[in-house]
Design a binder for these strands. Sequence first.
RNA 1: GGUUGGGUAGCUUAACUGGUAGAGCAGCGGGUUUAUAACCCGUAACGACAGAUAAUCGGCUGAUGCGAGUUCGAGUCUCGCCCCAACUACCA
Length: 938
Amino acid sequence: MSKQNIYKDTLNLPKTKFPMKANLAQREPNMLKQWEDSGIYRKLRDQAAGRPKFILHDGPPYANGDIHIGHAVNKILKDIIIKSQTLGGYDAPYIPGWDCHGLPIELNVEKKLGKAGVKVDEKTFRNGCREYAARQVAGQKADFKRLGVMADWDNPYLTMNYDFEANIIRTLGQIIDKGHLHKGSKPVHWCTDCGSALAEAEVEYEDKTSPAVDVRFKAVDRQAILDIFSAANGSDKPVNAVIWTTTPWTLPANQAVALHPDFDYVLVETDQELLILAEELYPSALQRYGVEQSQILGRCKGSQLENQLLQHPFYNRQVPVILGDHVTVDSGTGAVHTAPGHGQEDYVVGMKYDLEVDNPVAANGCFVTGTPLFEGQHVFKANPLVLEVLQQKGALLHHQDLLHSYPHCWRHKTPIIFRATPQWFISMDQNGLRQLAIDAAEHTTWLPDWGQARIEGMLENRPDWCISRQRTWGVPIALFVHNETQALHPDTQDLIEKVAQKVEQAGIDAWFELQPAELLGDDAQNYSKVTDTLDVWFDSGVTHACVIKQRDELQFPADLYLEGSDQHRGWFQSSLLSSVAVNDMAPYKEVLTHGFVVDAQGKKMSKSRGNVVAPQKIMKTLGADILRLWVSSTDYTGEVSVSDEILKRTADAYRRIRNTARFMLANMDGFEPQQNSLEVADMLPLDRWIVVKAEFLQQEIIGAYEQYDFHQVYQKVHNFCAMDLGAFYLDVIKDRQYTTQVDSIARRSAQTALYHIAEAMTRWIAPILSFTAEELWGFIPGKRDESVFFDSWYAFPPEIQDEMDDAYWQKVLAVRVACSKEMEKLRVDKTIGSSLDAEVDLYCDDELRALLEKLQDELRFVLITSYARLHKLSDRPADAVDADDVNGLAIQVKASEHNKCVRCWHHREDVGSDSEHPELCGRCIANVSGQGEVRHYV
RNA sequence: GGUUGGGUAGCUUAACUGGUAGAGCAGCGGGUUUAUAACCCGUAACGACAGAUAAUCGGCUGAUGCGAGUUCGAGUCUCGCCCCAACUACCA
């Protein structure tokens, strides 16, 4: 041992300060501080000035709550793209944003301040919201930064910034100018106790007992119905369609009876009448009515009855039969009472048939003045009265109470109703927006490509976009409408600009506090301010106008939007519609989506399931780079699984990459690229080969980045580290690195190769393992910029035509694998330990022998054996073993009988040939006290 | 209920227009101590079965969520089913 140490000092063992243990959780925050202190994002912009632009436009997360792993995936993917595009030579600015208005924030502020307009005035409430949102943004921003996301964090866009708010209003003006605005009414959830609309989130479902009634609607043209059913009937019994409802109070607003176009309906004769019922339901219905005797007179499809008129049960009104796919045969009669003012579905189908959206119910839940029979009655109290009236009119066929799930107000716990209220819409059809949007979607690249079918399906079927909300914390629909006619003020465009200027100065309060006379003068008495606010999807949908077009460094349209697949319904669509409405084109050229994060079983994450993985926890334990590497390792176009095992595997892969890099650095100890690197032509063929291999790989990696196929990058880099480098190249060059002389060509050649690979590989991983790459960057020898991100993909030295090309080395590798298998047999026998304890004799056919002869003495180094001798295949002894996967090769392995050189561990004949160094082989003697061995072959 | 996708080894992923299911990691078994909180070599594909052999191996069967179909041949095409996810609707 002591003697060995003498020679150990003559070896060039690996040496580096680059730590083996990553300690990411501790190290990353320091790196972040360094980046922040040096203003890396701004410097990056300066560096990239003048390059072609790549604009990835950030979709704003909602400013509420801590970021979850889905946010992390989204931001990391964006960051990988931004960084890879930057390394690819683009100027890729990244402006992060937040969505700041809206209900969830209101609800949280309400908990602290109380209800706006009740416990606290609206201005104070809005201020509370603004402060709350700002705090949320700050919290989320800190986490996003911690992920290593490089962005203009000092100048993000917030939808609540005054200029942003002003530009929302201006964009609304443009949409009006283009003729897409439309005022209508729409049923909304309404709490009669609150006297206001409820958002979906404020609705709870609870059981309620309602009167379920079967009601006759008498056919106006009896004969026509008989004809349709092909039913001859001599009697003069009336023909009645029967509807079933649990909300009798909505009958005053009835405008139609809906049937399913494809269902079979029967005309059933009973003692007193002919009933129209769905065939599937008529037995149960008749049973309910207590009818014992009946006969079917005829049947027809629902579609045949379309537009037949029916008599309203108690009003002097005739209503049509309409068709709708929402009609089911689960319960009732197969005929649905339709009141467009009181039901979502009724409203939608009513729009198709141009039915009146009649709403006779006031805000307090009572029938308005002038409602025949029920004026002033509260709707739920009116139910028995309606029944009474139906009874009187002979329209009530059956009544029984029914317990069912029914929407309730979450505050009052009282049943709510659907009530049509005036709302503002962006019309899909009045000025051709739907078709324009579909066309624009066709001109957009959707990744994955099924995104196009998805969004087109949505565009084709979606109703008009209701953009108005009756809320406090939102951008106002800053319009003046005529008190009588409800028409927009003729100077609307001018007024909008004036309002926008005020909002630019003072935020949305400027509108809510505005005295109309200030802008309208005497005309103010004829006009009212609209007090509705905009849907927050409008806010975020118009970032193309409020951000992309406002900031000089950005370009419209954006190259890419990237969000979760839920945003086909959300932001992708709101952005598309609003952009098409004002620009006649999509705001993006390409839309990329990622799936949701699920657990190892593919189940979605939820608190109740207890399978939630918090990004904060991963960053605190494993580090952001592990989280980033995990994101990169997934095919994110589908659902993405995460679990402890998956993260552990990711950490394993990380260590492989890190240690490979570390080993390369350690073997470049004392290497100065300017002085010590060799020309390609002077390098050893093996070293040239690995560099070419790396360059080839780089092309694939760049291609994968361009396709946003990051898991390909991950696989390729990892494979390269594990296989090409770890299992072969780095193992083989150890001998050369350690035992040859410091400044020998043999060693400098390998170091030159390591240098090129380290330069390249650091860049490959930089978009993903940003912290680690930056750390590595400081350890690679040679002069360099402050940050890896200021650089571009590595420019390899020019290739030269090489006799020993990749195909050549693949054959050598196959021989190596065959030898390893044979050596393993001796190792199992404990005949040898290290492969250097072995000598191999290779019996090759002529072709293979010629091939391997080119390696000369290097063959033993490639095989990491003490001797490697070539022979003719015809000379093979009986105990040589045919190689499985190499033709024309038989191998004989035996333990070497020669002494082991204590310095290089090879067993050589010439060990001890020099009495001064009795334990060294000839090669080592030359390296220790002579000129040094020559390892240049070919 | 509807729309759009998805389900390949313990994990992450490959497989061109149908043509031998390919890698890496993990696992298991060894080795090295000159990458050592590291590295190398070998092995290996649900579960199960029977035979031969015991150094070497050959065969059957099964195998891309399940089951059919088309085909000489299916991870890939068709149909049905199960499960998962996003969106959407409904409960009159």
